[in-house]
Design a protein around this nucleic acid. Structure first.
Lengths: 155, 155
DNA sequence: GCTTTACCTTAACTTTAGTTGAGGTTTTAG
DNA sequence: CTAAAACCTCAACTAAAGTTAAGGTAAAGC
């Protein structure tokens, strides 16, 4: 590792295959992320990609965000606040995660609501379909806002 | 309503536009669902689609399931247990919802774990990246990589 | 030294979930 | 009765997030 030299000069030591393996994504996905400007690499003498260790966190964050339903375009936008070619520091990541944390909590709340609707409504006796939130997107339970109630596209 | 006649003969009274409006989906989406075999319609004298009221619940369930990250193919499979051209009864829907309830709970658990990882990991000092759940997706997050989590647009 | 594995680029293809448009018919409103 | 709105089919298009293939170079293992 010969540390002490990682200061301003990122070490580019990881091959694309190594990164792929460690992050659990395919090589082609990494190429794709690079084309999208989500990750960066240097090249070795033979024109092969070489990554610094920070790419692993970048990719991990990409995958994590995707789990949240964040699109690559949105991740791209969020990543715009990161230093492009250097390892972002804690505050950089923290700023990102804070926004996503909130989105995630709100998503969880929404899913819980949906789960409760499924339990309480679809499985229950409301076949009369008079006050069923699933059945009555707009009509009966029509919590204002057009479109299906439980499925609502958000405030 | 002139009840007493709805027994075996479903009344097909809703036009595609009406269903679209009530369910908050587009007409083309309804055509599409029909091509996929997710919904059915009769035709009037002029070859226009006419739906029974049960289609609204079908579409609502489709939309709800999509929120859970269930794909149309999976919904299709689940719908195979429903009577094809008649309004499903309570037990039919209940069977569906039970499966999805479990899937939903598990998705919620997963998202909570991810949220906690974001909070506890990305924002914290684990820049050493040695036991960071984000950093090592294969260990922690990569456990279950199936199905998109569809979030709404609400960053 | 040779061969297998990893890597390179570019382009085309895949899947999902629809949307859009063209060209024509039906229904509804005035 | 006529015009507008809604509907019909079919085909082509879109976007996201990659994957796959082709043709060639670099690096690693024995």
């Amino acid at each position: 590792m010969s540390a002490g030299f990682d200061r301003g000069m990122e070490r580019q030591e990881l091959s694309v295959g190594q990164v792929a393996k460690r992050c659990g994504v395919s090589v082609s996905a990494l190429h794709f992320y690079e084309r999208r400007g989500l990750i960066f690499s240097g090249r070795n003498a033979g024109n092969q990609r070489r990554y610094g260790k920070d790419v692993i966190r970048r990719v991990s964050v990409i995958r994590a965000a995707q789990q949240l339903g964040v699109t690559l375009a949105e991740i791209e936008a969020a990543f715009a606040s990161l230093p492009r070619h250097k390892a972002p520091n804690r505050r950089h990541w923290q700023a990102l995660s804070e926004g996503w944390h909130e989105a995630l909590s709100s998503r969880i709340r929404k899913l819980e609501k949906l789960r409760d609707s499924l339990t309480g409504c679809i499985g229950c006796g409301c076949l009369s379909m008079d006050n069923c939130p699933l059945y009555n997107p707009e009509d009966v339970l029509g919590e204002e806002r057009s479109g299906p109630v439980i499925l609502d596209r958000d405030p």
